[in-house]
Design a protein around this nucleic acid. Structure first.
Length: 221
DNA sequence: CACCAGGCAAGTA
DNA sequence: TACTTGCATGGT
């Protein structure tokens, strides 16, 4: 009974969080990349890795002429790994980049505009079959590279939602994804902004060490 | 100098 | 199914 009342108010709470964060940060214009292909590369490189290190790896890849599908698939594992070294896990991520590129090649001949027309749920399943693409990476690609209406859940989302009593401690990826997608049904721009706002909030106010919650835009939610 | 970062796969019980 | 471990560099 107590619980049911709370759950009914959750969507309202989520909308409020969105309003407060957008008022505080404005339009963040994610994903920070020049092309959809670069978004996909970044989505792999940022796995459990600080974005600042991903930027270094991306700069090296561009300098070495490796920021294309053909260059990545045609390049030796060791060379690709060396280029992305600053992003950490370089050996596994080199394999993962190649796996995604192989998938893109066979799925649409590397023409991402063609992928945008595919059914979202079907495409999501296919991405998840690629080794190295889990739920968050798949949804990041769908949303930020292909403009599909899905919400990206990450460690920050879980932390913030738990702290604001919008999720149990053991909530799973799909629980949170469904929760947000039901609030902003089909609204790609909202999903885009909201995930970006959450990451920005966590980086500035909810990082494990920093005790800045007193200044967090969400402090009175 | 520990701890953490826009995860995921593979192995074990 | 539910846990655990390996992967690795660089910032704070």
């Amino acid at each position: 009974m107590e619980r049911k009342t709370k759950v009914r108010r959750d969507p309202e709470k989520v909308r409020k969080m969105y309003r407060l964060l957008e008022a505080h940060f404005g339009d963040l214009g994610w994903w920070p990349s020049e092309t959809p292909f670069e978004v996909i590369v970044g989505a792999i490189l940022t796995q459990n890795t600080a974005w600042v290190n991903v930027e270094k790896a991306i700069r090296v890849m561009k300098r070495e002429g490796l920021m294309t599908l053909a260059a990545i698939t045609g390049c030796a594992d060791e060379r690709l790994a060396a280029a992305i070294r600053p992003a950490g896990y370089h050996n596994v991520k080199a394999r993962r980049l190649k796996a995604v590129c192989r998938f893109l090649q066979e799925e649409c001949g590397g023409r991402l505009s063609k992928l945008k027309k595919a059914d979202t749920a079907v495409l999501r399943k296919k991405f998840l079959e690629v080794k190295g693409v889990g739920p968050e990476t798949a949804d990041s690609i769908l949303l930020y590279a292909l403009e599909k209406p899905v919400f990206v859940v990450d460690a920050y989302t879980k932390r913030i939602f738990f702290r604001h009593a919008l999720a149990d401690e053991d909530a799973v990826y799909e629980d949170l994804r469904g929760k947000v997608e039901n609030v902003f049904k089909g609204d790609t721009d909202r999903f885009n902004q909201f995930h970006a706002l959450i990451v920005e909030t966590a980086k500035n106010y909810c990082r494990k060490k920093k005790g800045l919650c007193g200044k967090c835009p969400l402090r009175r939610v």
